[in-house]
């Protein structure tokens, strides 16, 4: 009886986690363009999930696929690259460069059992507050449907 009750509790806890699962999203933004856009979303008091966190870098093309992989391995459920669109002040081809790193990361994800939907890239301009928030809502929904990422699905 004792063991059975324990098992019941475990199941109850697990189903509760399933219901309350709120995906963790890492956003890579750019100092000059997309990060000000994300700031503006906050200044406008537009809400998105507090499980969304941002790391700002100079240009999205500086994000190695290994960093995307690292974030997923460590426990983020999704990674969003807030790229510069056509506005990058540094590199006219930064979108292509970033897209190449995304493609590399996706190859790795395929091998390691992460669904490709867990990685997204979109242009966020310096006043794109609403588009950013919409992307986050949509991405949160997608990731919620997918459930926790990678290793967390099996074993842990």
């Amino acid at each position: 009886m004792e063991t059975l009750r324990e098992a019941d509790e475990v199941t109850a806890v697990m189903s509760q986690t399933q219901i309350e699962f709120e995906p963790r999203i890492l956003v890579f933004s750019t100092n000059n363009i997309s990060d000000p856009g994300i700031d503006l979303a906050g200044s406008s008091h537009l809400h998105y999930s507090p499980r969304v966190v941002t790391i700002a870098v100079p240009c999205s093309s500086g994000i190695s696929s290994s960093l995307i992989e690292y974030a997923l391995k460590r426990g983020f459920d999704g990674v969003f690259l807030a790229a510069d669109g056509d506005e990058c002040a540094y590199l006219s081809d930064c979108n292509e460069r970033t897209a190449n790193h995304v493609a590399d990361a996706q190859k790795w994800m395929k091998i390691h059992g992460f669904q490709p939907e867990r990685l997204r890239m979109a242009a966020i301009c310096s006043v794109c507050a609403e588009p950013f928030v919409n992307y986050m809502h949509e991405f949160s929904r997608t990731l919620t449907a997918l459930g926790p990422a990678g290793d967390k699905n099996h074993g842990l």
Binding site: I38, H45, L46, S49, P50, R51, V53
Partner: peptide, 25 residues
């Protein structure tokens, strides 16, 4: 660390969520 534009102001509806996030930021 960006605790206002990218945390408190974006999550005015969720004190616990915002605080948890702030801790990690």
């Amino acid at each position: 660390v960006n605790l206002r534009e990218q945390c408190s102001w974006a999550h005015t509806d969720d004190r616990k969520g915002a605080t948890d996030k702030a801790v990690t930021l």
